[in-house]
Simulated assay, not measured.
Amino acid sequence: MPAQRADARRNYARILAVAEEEVATHGADASLEQIARTAGVGSATVRRHFPTRHALLEAVFRERIQALATRAHELSEADDIRAALLDWLGALTVYSATVQGLATALLRAGELDPDHANPCVTPLAEAGEPLLRRAEQAGAVPPGVTPVDLVTLIAGIALAAQHHPDPATEATRLLHLTVTGISPPG
C-alpha cells in the first residue's frame, strides 16, 4: 500500500505541474487529455485526482489565490480602508491579467452545479468581504457592492487587457479608470 500512496502522490504532483504549464499556455480550456498524455498517465488518473476541470483549475491557482486572500485579511484592518481595498484590487488585477486562464475561471461560476460555489471565486470573495464591508461603512464604495461583483469586475478588466502587449499595465490602467468612476477620492 505505501508504494501506491507514494505513486499516487507522484502522479498528483506530475499532473499538477503539467496542468500549470498547459493552463499558462492554453488558458482555462487546456485539454485534460493533453495534460494526461504529457504527465504520462491515463485520463482516468487525472479524473481520479481532479474530478472536474474546476477542481484542476482550483489546484493550479490555489497558491496565488491563497496569497491574495491573505493579503485581503491583512488589509482589512488598515486605517485608510479605501487605499487598502484599492491595493487588494490592484494585486488581484495584475495577477488576473498576467496568468492566462484565471480571469476565465473567475467568470465561469454559471457553468458549475448550482449547489457548489466557484472554487476560484469563493476564497477571494470570502477574504474580500471584511475589507469591502469596512470600505462600504466608510463610504468608499456604494452600498450593495458584493465581493463577487468586484471579482467579476476584475476578471472582466483582465479579459479586456489580455491581448494588450503589456496586459498588467493595461489592466491596471483600466482599473484606475473604473475606480475613478465609482469611487472618486475624498
Rank of each mutant, 00 (worst) to 15 (best):
E58M: 00
E74G: 14
E74P: 10
E33H: 15
G40C: 01
L32V: 10
T38G: 13
V99Q: 15
L112Q: 01
G110K: 06
F61P: 06
Q66E: 13
P114D: 11
L106D: 00
L102I: 00
I35K: 06
L32K: 00
I35Y: 07
L57S: 05
S43M: 13
V46A: 06
L85G: 03
S76W: 12
L75C: 06
I35T: 14
L89S: 11
G40M: 06
V60M: 08
L112P: 00
R62C: 10
F50N: 07
F61V: 03
T98F: 11
E58L: 02
R71N: 12
L106C: 00
G101N: 04
Q34V: 13
R47S: 06
T98D: 13
A69Y: 04
S76K: 14
A97Q: 05
D80I: 02
G90L: 14
P51F: 10
E58W: 00
G110F: 07
W88T: 02
W88H: 09
A117E: 04
E58G: 01
T45A: 11
A72C: 11
W88E: 03
D115H: 07
A36C: 10
G101A: 01
A69F: 04
E111S: 05
Q34K: 15
A69K: 10
Q100I: 06
T70C: 15
H54R: 08
F61W: 09
V94H: 05
D80L: 09
Q34D: 14
E58S: 07
E58T: 01
I65F: 13
A97E: 10
V46I: 03
Q66P: 05
A44Q: 11
Q100D: 10
T52N: 03
E111F: 02
G42W: 09
H54M: 12
A67E: 10
E111G: 00
V99K: 08
L56S: 01
L106G: 00
V60Y: 12
T38Y: 03
A105K: 04
L92K: 05
D115L: 11
D113Y: 08
S31G: 14
E77R: 12
P114L: 06
L56E: 07
R37T: 14
R108Q: 04
R62I: 08
V94D: 13
R53C: 00
V41A: 11
L102C: 09
V46D: 01
A59H: 08
A109W: 03
A105I: 00
D79I: 11
G42E: 05
E111V: 00
R62E: 13
T45L: 02
E33W: 12
P114K: 12
L106N: 02
R108N: 07
T38A: 14
S43I: 14
A117K: 01
Q66C: 09
L86G: 08
A97N: 08
E111N: 09
E63A: 12
A105P: 05
T38H: 13
L102Q: 04
H116K: 06
L56P: 02
I35C: 15
A117C: 00
A91P: 09
P51Y: 14
A69I: 04
A78R: 12
T98G: 09
G90D: 15
Y95P: 10
L92E: 05
P114V: 01
L68C: 12
A84R: 11
D87R: 12
D79A: 15
S96K: 01
A59R: 05
F50G: 03
T98S: 14
A78L: 08
A55I: 13
I65V: 15
H73S: 10
T52P: 05
L56G: 10
V41R: 09
A105V: 10
